[in-house]
Simulated assay, not measured.
Amino acid sequence: MPSRRRFLALGATAALAGCATTADDPPKAGADESPDPEEHIDGANGEWSSFGCNASNTRTVADGNAPVDGVTERWRVDAPQLLFHPPVASDGRVFLPVPNRLEAYDARDGSMLWATDEDEAETAPLVRDGTVYVGASNRLRALDAKTGTTKWERTFDADGTVAAPSTYGGDRLYVPVGEMVYRVDSKTGETDWSRRLFGTLLGSSPCGSRGVTLATEAGKIYVLGPDGTGWGEWGLPSQPQAPPTIDTDGIYVNCLDRKTYGIRTETEPRLDIDWSVETGWANGGLAVKANLYAAGTKGLHAIDPATGEQLWTEDTGDWRRTAPALVRDTLFVGGEKLFAFDPTPSSGLLSGDGPARRFEKSFSGPVRFGPVLNDGALYVVAQTGEETYQLVALE
């Protein structure tokens, strides 16, 4: 590992220039201005505030710093082996969803700030404007991010459990409950409208300029406008494995048949699935910025989001719940190790079929969840001993 570490400003990722075997110099330090989530194309607020980082689930951080030459450990805390959701990092805190409970840690030193009681938090959290939104059975709870105290709680009568909510600008939440989706006021929990769809809805639904994109276990994809009217509907040949990722031109989702599917939305909606590519299971979600990235049981894949053409692959292991995380010119991903790649070398195509590697960080076992990026730090849940699993902060 290099002894000197430089830091990269987070922001827009340039289009891929090709594959290379040697990395260009890391980007210069600096930081972009924190975006306005009401105006940002992905609904970003500068934080890793939800399952997919921002409103569109692109797993791309909008501003800040991140290590690109190597990492040192800031702190680590124990985590259970059985986890279903990755951590979320926002406003100086790291939120770890453990089974039936949510724990909040200080991002500086790893000290626990608060934790919910058992059975009071069962979904991935959404953090916006000092409030943590989390589902528990048939309830949606709004918690103070600093203290964990309850601001309000809403009970739903629909059959099914509350899945992780999502938002675009923060003033309204989209809340899946079984086959129902509700749009509610983020300050009060009062309902604006509700719709019944076909199949149990996944949580952490991505939001964009057209509204909210919802996936169901029955293999349906819906796009509903802000007023609840339908904009598009598609049928997938298999059950989605994770919430979709969207950008201005497409919807991307990984499914149980080990394929990733692309739906182009730059024109009027059609019934067609435009492409599919074998990527293996990628339960941790997909990343997109210029190109689409999937990581899971068949390693790391770079895909042209317009055509589904597989641009390159990289062997990172076969752990399905890790997922790529993007900064301006660096792609972080877990698996057998924590990897940092340079996917956009200015030198163009050289020999080799994969990206240049900036660095790697080994643990006793695989990186199981993450990486998550926030305020100059990386967060992963990794196996650190024969039977030990920990949330690790790296800088």
Rank of each mutant, 00 (worst) to 15 (best):
N254L: 00
K259I: 00
W231D: 09
G225C: 06
N254S: 15
C207N: 15
I246S: 04
W231H: 12
G211Y: 09
C207V: 06
E266D: 15
Y222H: 12
T213L: 06
K259E: 11
T229A: 05
C207M: 12
P244T: 05
T265N: 06
C207S: 12
G262M: 11
L214F: 01
L271M: 08
E268I: 05
D227C: 00
Y252R: 02
W234I: 04
D247G: 08
P240D: 03
I263Y: 01
T216G: 01
G211Q: 08
T265L: 03
A215M: 09
G208C: 10
L256F: 11
T216S: 08
Q241C: 09
K259V: 03
Y252E: 02
G211D: 10
K259C: 05
Y222G: 05
Q239V: 13
V253R: 02
Y252F: 15
G230M: 15
P226F: 11
R270L: 03
I251N: 02
G225S: 15
G232E: 09
G235C: 07
I263Q: 01
C255P: 05
E233F: 07
G228V: 04
L256D: 14
W231T: 12
K220G: 03
G208W: 05
R258I: 04
G230N: 07
G250W: 05
G228C: 00
Y222D: 08
T229R: 12
G230P: 13
R258S: 13
T260M: 03
W231P: 00
C207G: 02
R264H: 13
T265E: 08
K259A: 12
G208L: 02
P226A: 05
